[in-house]
Amino acid sequence: MPEAVLPRVAVTEAAADMLRHLAATNGPLMFHQSGGCCDGSSPMCYPVGMFRTGGSDVLLGALEVEGIDPVEVYMSRSQFEYWKHTFLTIDIVDGRGSGFSIEAPEGKRFLIRSRLLDDAELEAFGLGAPRIGASGAAGLVGSGLATPGLVAPRLATHGGGDG
């Protein structure tokens, strides 16, 4: 199987600015995507070492943000099963969250924006035939959970995602 080189996560410029700001006082950072209620379904930003990832998690990639260490983005493996056909862009909005994500005191909250993977991406990630989104007729095909590209420690990603 060819090594996937396509990213599946990105970060907007505004979010990247916040990451640089946070890294200046907190050191290297990472994200873990949350599920569930209240502040769920939001990306949680932590200093590296604060949150223990494990075998139940998937590494989606690492955000390359100029001036700071790559920011790894994780999600629980079970949640990823339902998310794997989408490309995620981390953006930022006004707000304050309610978890322990470290940007909250700044009056800002990281937010996930999503788009469907295109055909080339689906193929690259081993996700089989593309779903037929518009008609709603086809289900997800393929079950490539942890393709090699997904667990590679440093996937090339870039800033400036348009969400």
Partner: peptide, 20 residues
């Protein structure tokens, strides 16, 4: 809250994209 509002709108967006 505003971030809750934004999150809901982002889900409406992915719902439409997925063909719901």
């Amino acid at each position: 809250s505003n971030d809750q509002l934004e999150k809901i709108l982002s889900y409406m967006d992915i719902g439409k994209q997925e063909g719901a």
